[in-house]
Design a binder for these strands. Structure first.
Length: 327
DNA sequence: GATTAGGTTTTG
C-alpha cells in the first residue's frame, strides 16, 4: 500500500462544514478528558498556528487513550480527520470518523517525540519540520500563553491556583466524593502541611514515611469527578495536577484534625470538582521533559544528601519500591 | 454515522 500523503489546512483557511480535514497547531488552552453526559469522554482545547487564528476543538472519544495526550500549553498537536462546525459564528473543530491525534512537547530543541496511543501512525520528515516550525514560531510569540501556572511546592502561595508536576507516593479514599493523593516534587514547601488522619489499611502505597520524607509530602484532596480519574492512578506515577488550589488555616476536609483558623495555618491542597480552568489530572509519560526535570531537580544538589528524596520506580520495573541512585 | 459540549474557579 502506498504511504498516504496528508494535507494540512491552515487554521485561517478552514471552511465551515468541511467534512474531514487535518490540522496542526499549538495548544493554548485545554481540558483533560472529562465524562460527557453521552457515551464518550470529551476533551476541549484551543489551538493556534502561524496564521494567528485561534480555533476551539471539541473531541469525543469513547476510549480515554484515543484522546490527545496534552501535558501543557505550548504542546504541539496534529489531528487527522476533524470536521468543522459553526458555533456562535466561529469555526470549531470536532473529531470525525477515523480521528487520530499526535502531540509533541513544544520546547524548541527538545526531542521530537510523538505521543500517541495509535499502534501505527504516519510520521515523516515533513511532520518533523512542521513540529519544529511551530515550536520556533510559538517561541517568538510573546502573547501566547506560557506554562505560567506551573509552580513547585517550594514556591506555592497560599490561596493561589497552580499546576503541580509531581510523583504520586500514596493514595487513599476518604469518602465517596473525595480521594487523598500524597505527592511530592522533591522541593520543600515553606509552609507547614496539614495532618490527615487515614486508616493505614485504606492506603494504597506506604501508609507513612520517615519524618524527613514526610516533610516533603503534600496532601491533595481531589473531589467529585476527579475521584474517578484518581482511581486509575498508581503510586509511582508522575502526574500533572491542573488548577490545584493551596488552602490554609480554616480549610476543612475529611480526616482533618481540627486546626485553628488563622492566617499562617497549615496547607492543604484541593482539586475542586468540575473542569473549569482545565481542572484535572494527567499521568505524564516517563520520558517527557517535565518528568526528566522533576527527577533532576528532586535528586540534584539543591537538597542535602540525607534529605534527597528517593523516587519510586515505575510499576513493574522490579520488586516494588526501588531507590534511584543519588547524585 | 445518534449523543455528548460549547473554557472562565469550590464552597469540601
Amino acid at each position: 500500500m502506498p504511504t498516504p500523503k496528508y494535507m494540512y489546512v491552515r487554521l485561517d483557511e478552514l471552511k465551515a462544514a468541511a467534512a474531514s480535514v487535518n490540522v496542526y497547531g499549538v495548544v493554548v488552552f485545554f481540558k483533560q478528558p472529562f465524562r460527557s453526559r453521552g457515551t464518550d469522554w470529551c476533551s476541549s482545547l484551543k489551538i493556534v498556528d502561524q496564521s494567528n487564528k485561534k480555533v476551539g476543538c471539541t473531541l469525543f472519544c469513547e476510549k480515554l487513550e484515543d484522546h490527545p495526550q496534552i501535558f501543557k500549553n505550548g504542546d504541539i498537536i496534529r489531528m487527522h480527520r476533524v470536521k468543522t462546525q459553526l458555533y456562535n459564528g466561529a469555526i470549531t473543530l470536532v473529531n470525525t470518523f477515523g480521528f487520530s491525534a499526535v502531540t509533541f512537547d513544544g520546547a524548541p530543541g527538545s526531542a521530537v517525540e510523538p505521543r500517541t496511543s495509535s499502534r501505527s501512525f504516519h510520521f515523516d520528515q515533513d511532520d518533523r519540520r512542521r513540529v519544529e516550525e511551530l515550536r520556533s514560531w510559538a517561541g517568538g510569540q510573546a502573547a501566547l500563553p506560557r506554562d505560567a501556572a506551573a509552580v513547585p511546592l517550594s514556591s506555592v502561595r497560599p490561596r493561589a491556583f497552580f499546576d503541580l508536576t509531581c510523583q504520586l507516593l500514596a493514595k487513599a479514599p476518604m469518602d465517596t466524593t473525595c480521594t487523598l493523593l500524597r505527592v511530592w516534587d522533591g522541593t520543600r514547601c515553606p509552609h507547614p502541611q496539614v495532618e490527615v488522619m487515614v486508616e493505614p489499611h485504606a492506603v494504597e502505597g506506604p501508609a507513612s514515611f520517615s519524618k524527613d520524607k514526610e516533610s516533603l509530602v503534600a496532601n491533595v484532596f481531589v473531589y467529585d469527578n476527579h475521584v474517578e480519574s484518581a482511581r486509575a492512578l498508581k503510586p509511582g506515577d508522575f502526574l500533572r495536577i491542573y488548577n490545584l488550589r493551596a488552602l490554609q488555616g480554616s480549610s476543612k476536609g475529611p480526616g482533618l484534625a481540627t486546626e485553628p483558623s488563622e492566617a499562617g495555618g497549615p496547607l492543604i491542597f484541593h482539586l475542586h470538582g468540575g473542569t473549569s480552568y482545565g481542572r484535572g489530572i494527567r499521568v505524564l509519560s516517563e520520558n517527557c521533559p517535565d518528568v526528566q526535570e522533576l527527577k533532576r531537580y528532586s535528586m540534584g544538589p539543591r537538597l542535602d544528601q540525607d534529605q534527597a528524596p528517593v523516587l519510586i520506580g515505575p510499576p513493574g520495573t522490579g520488586s516494588g519500591i526501588r531507590t534511584c541512585s543519588l547524585l
